[in-house]
């Protein structure tokens, strides 16, 4: 039965997490790096939901709810920071972000 094959869901979660990690490492555009981080968060959410099925406890879904809350706050603040950096430097390439370098 499909709702019992939690291993497939964990496998899919691992694949999506890896794709997101490859994007974070290889892309230079700050917004796309940010979107890849959102994809990794979603892969972790999928693992949480399958763990809900394995453990038969609803706490996984509560956790996913809080992850979504944090992701929303993170997106708001992070994109505001990107707008600031773009105003300051005229680019959002992650290679150019060296403002904190001493």
């Amino acid at each position: 039965m499909v709702e019992h094959s939690y291993n497939l869901y964990l496998l899919l979660s691992a694949i999506l997490f890896t794709i997101g990690a490859i994007g974070v490492i290889t892309r230079r555009n700050g917004i796309i790096v940010f979107m890849c981080i959102e994809l990794m968060l979603n892969a972790a959410n999928l693992a949480f939901i399958s763990a809900t099925g394995i453990q038969k406890a609803l706490e996984g879904m509560i956790f996913v709810f809080f992850v979504m809350t944090v992701a929303a706050a993170e997106a708001a603040v992070g994109l505001a920071i990107f707008v600031m950096i773009f105003r300051l430097k005229g680019t959002i390439s992650v290679d150019e972000m060296n403002l904190l370098k001493g």
């Binding site: 709702e3 869901y9 099925g53 879904m61």
Partner: peptide, 9 residues
């Protein structure tokens, strides 16, 4: 998520 019965999520 719908397949996993997590409709709210």
């Amino acid at each position: 998520y719908f397949l996993l019965n997590a409709t709210f999520i």
